[in-house]
C-alpha cells in the first residue's frame, strides 16, 4: 500500500504541479487583477501601500462597474454568443452530412476519408485565415464573380472582406473538423440493423433518419457543438484579420485592453466574464449530455 501511493505521487505530482503553477495560479491572478487599479503607464498599480507604518489595500470594484456603465460590452458579448451560435449551427449543417457519409461508406475507405477532414486542421491556423483573405479580397476571383453577376442584374457591387459574412465563413472553416470528429465517432457505432428493421416496417428514408439516426446521434451533436462554440466565443485572430470594425468580437476588446490601451484590470474583468461563460457552457453541455445518455 505504501509503495502504491509512492508510485501514484511520482505519476501525479509533476504534471499537477506544472498545471497548478502555469494554469490555475495565473487564472487566480487574473481574477485578482480585475480588482486592482491601472498603473500610471498602463498595466497594474501596486495593490497595497504602506503609509505611516499602516498597511492599506488599494483594491476597487470600479472595473466591474465599468462593465455595466455602458451597454457596449454586454452587447458585444451577446454579439459574440450570436456568432458562436451561428457558426455552431452551420458546422452541424455541413459537418453532419459529411460525418454520416463517412460513417456509411465502406470500411476500408473510412480512415482515409476521415484523415482528409483532419488534414487541413494540421496546417497552420493563420494560413487558413490567410487563404480566406485571398478569397475575399476585392480583386479576388470570388468577389469579382459575384460583382459581375450583380452588375448584370443592375445591382451595386459589394465587398465581402471585413464583414460578418467573411468572419463567420472562416470561423466555420476553421472549426468544422471539431464537429465532424465527435459526430463520426458517434455515428460509426450505430447498429445498421435498426435502420433495416425500420425500413422493413415501412419507414421512408426521412422518417428513418429523424426517428432513429438523429436521436441516437444527439450526444455527438452536443459534444461537437461545445468543441466549436467555446473556441469561437473566445476567437480574436479571425475577426481581427477578416472582420474590420463591424466584425469584431469580445476577444478583440480583451486583446485591445491588454495590448493597445494597456488597461489590464478591465481586460481581466472581460476575461473573467468570458471564463465564466465558457465554464457555464461546458457544465450545461455535460448536464444535457448526461440526460441524453439516460
Amino acid at each position: 500500500m505504501q509503495q502504491k501511493s509512492w508510485q501514484q505521487r511520482l505519476l501525479t505530482l509533476p504534471p499537477m504541479g506544472y498545471l497548478l503553477i502555469f494554469f490555475a495560479i495565473p487564472t487566480l491572478i487574473m481574477l485578482f487583477a480585475s480588482f486592482r487599479y491601472t498603473g500610471e503607464y498602463g498595466g497594474l498599480a501596486p495593490w497595497y501601500s504602506i503609509e505611516n507604518g499602516t498597511l492599506a489595500f488599494d483594491l476597487t470594484l470600479e472595473n466591474w462597474q465599468r462593465l455595466f456603465e455602458t451597454d457596449i460590452y454586454l452587447r458585444l458579448f451577446f454579439k459574440s454568443i450570436g456568432y458562436a451560435l451561428v457558426t455552431t449551427l452551420l458546422c452541424i449543417l455541413l459537418g453532419y452530412p459529411l460525418a454520416l457519409m463517412i460513417a456509411r461508406s465502406q470500411k476500408k475507405h473510412r480512415d482515409l476519408l476521415l484523415l482528409l477532414v483532419i488534414l487541413p486542421f494540421w496546417s497552420n491556423f493563420l494560413v487558413r485565415i490567410y487563404a480566406w483573405m485571398i478569397i475575399f479580397s476585392p480583386n479576388g476571383a470570388l468577389t469579382q464573380m459575384i460583382n459581375s453577376l450583380r452588375d448584370l442584374l443592375g445591382l451595386a457591387p459589394i465587398s465581402i472582406m471585413y464583414s460578418a459574412t467573411a468572419v463567420i465563413t472562416c470561423l466555420v472553416y476553421v472549426h468544422l473538423p471539431f464537429m465532424v470528429l465527435p459526430l463520426y465517432a458517434n455515428l460509426e457505432k450505430h447498429n445498421p440493423a435498426l435502420l433495416d428493421a425500420a425500413q422493413d416496417l415501412g419507414a421512408n428514408r426521412w422518417r428513418r433518419f429523424w426517428r432513429i439516426t438523429w436521436p441516437l446521434s444527439l450526444s455527438g451533436v452536443y459534444a461537437g457543438s461545445i468543441l466549436v462554440f467555446i473556441p469561437v466565443l473566445g476567437m480574436f485572430a479571425i475577426p481581427d484579420l477578416l472582420g474590420g470594425t463591424d466584425g469584431i468580437m469580445i476577444a478583440n476588446v480583451i486583446k485591445q485592453q491588454f495590448v493597445e490601451s494597456r488597461d489590464w484590470p478591465f481586460g481581466s474583468v472581460l476575461s473573467m466574464v468570458l471564463t465564466a461563460t465558457a465554464v457555464l457552457v461546458v457544465l450545461l453541455g455535460a448536464k444535457i449530455g448526461q440526460q441524453g445518455a439516460r
Binding site: P15, L19, F22, F23, I29, S268, A278
Partner: peptide
C-alpha cells in the same frame, strides 16, 4: 488511467476547454 483522481483530470482538461486567449492573458499577467 490508473487512479481515481479528482483534481488532475480537471487541471488537464480545463486548459483544452478554455478559449486560448484566456491562457494568453493570464500567463502574461503571471
Amino acid at each position: 488511467h490508473q487512479y481515481r483522481l479528482k483534481l488532475l483530470p480537471g487541471l488537464v482538461l480545463a486548459p483544452i476547454a478554455m478559449p486560448d486567449i484566456l491562457m494568453g492573458v493570464s500567463l502574461l499577467l503571471f
